[in-house]
């Protein structure tokens, strides 16, 4: 578990982080969201002990990073924004070097690096010079480096930036795998990425922490459906309102008078299936074709935009 406790960090007159507190529980994947310059990298640099905070504390498994730096750092694997690679080394030499740094026992080193190389799909290039590798491979070597020494906590700074779409998918898949038995914390400005991979999102804006969003949906029991039906609202709505299990009905503007767009909130997750069935039968009976019917994820985008806009208004 890693925790920031009322952390403030200034660079000269610029406040990069101001009184930020949050924690990443064990075996959780936490996404740090924010626009460029929001303080994401600073937060990660503080958490990994690269820089000390001006005030507040960084706690790793309850130990203070300032006083137990060695113990704390041993538990963390970090991929900074720019992967810290030595171009003149081969992948194998580099991973051996990192293992030595992370105090991996000599006799376990070979098995350990083999496992990591396998996991990061680097087996083919392990004897090539890092300087000759493509960006996607370099990123993977960077992640491999963070896994050396088998740390419980993996911290990644914008791991998918600058990669092509296939590589992005691969890296995300890797993060998902890692999340199964590690605590993973990564920063990103891509909302869908955070939504897909994380159980918690922490939103930062100009150095302040705005809110923490629970993405597992465990907290709330409601579920939202988006429906688009060919038919006028006045014909559609009475029928929809009569369906049991719908707590709230909102009409959205569809831009086409012949099409009705609705956002329906179901009272319980368990009733979602039944509500969907009933909608289908209802619209079929009305001879109103369904254009779209989909569950709406608790939109992180809305939360994010709303949160950061509101902050911008503050002078």
């Amino acid at each position: 578990m890693i925790e920031l406790e009322h952390v403030t960090k200034k660079y000269g007159s610029i406040t990069a982080l101001s009184d930020v507190s949050f924690r990443a529980e064990n075996r959780r994947t936490v996404g740090l969201l924010g626009r460029n310059g929001a303080g994401k990298t600073t937060a990660l640099n503080l958490m990994t002990g690269y820089m000390p905070p001006d005030s507040g504390r960084v706690l790793v498994d309850g130990m203070d990073m300032m006083t137990h730096a060695r113990e704390c750092k041993r538990r963390i694997g970090y991929l900074p924004e720019r992967p810290p690679l030595y171009d003149e080394m081969t992948v194998r030499e580099y991973l051996n070097f990192v293992c030595d740094l992370k105090e991996v026992v000599r006799k376990d080193r070979k098995a350990h690096t083999d496992e990591i190389t396998e996991m990061c799909a680097l087996t083919d290039v392990r004897d090539r010079l890092i300087g000759h590798l493509s960006k996607g491979y370099r990123q993977r070597v960077g992640i491999a480096q963070a896994l050396c020494g088998n740390p419980e906590l993996i911290i990644l700074d914008e791991p998918t930036v600058g990669l092509d779409p296939m590589q992005v998918v691969e890296i995300r898949e890797m993060i998902r795998e890692l999340g199964k038995d590690h605590t993973v914390l990564f920063s990103s400005h891509i909302l869908t990425e955070v939504q897909q991979l994380c159980s918690t999102a922490v939103i930062l804006n100009v150095g302040r922490m705005i809110r923490t969003v629970d993405l597992t949906g465990e907290g709330s029991d409601t579920v939202t459906l988006r429906v688009s039906v060919a038919g006028k609202p006045k014909d559609i709505l009475p029928g929809v309102r009569s369906i049991e299990g719908i707590r709230k009905t909102e009409t959205l503007s569809s831009g086409d008078p012949g099409v009705t767009e609705l956002r329906l909130t179901c009272a319980k997750k368990t009733t979602r299936g039944r509500v969907t069935d009933q909608l289908f039968h209802l619209f079929a009976a009305m001879d109103a074709p369904i254009r779209m019917l989909a569950p709406e994820a608790d939109s992180l985008e809305d939360v994010f935009l709303h949160a950061t806009e509101r902050e911008d208004d503050v002078p």
Partner: peptide, 14 residues
């Protein structure tokens, strides 16, 4: 210059 000091400074080495 290359940012590799981040690796050294976040490793358990003094």
């Amino acid at each position: 210059q290359k940012g590799t000091e981040q690796l050294l400074l976040t490793s358990p080495v003094s």
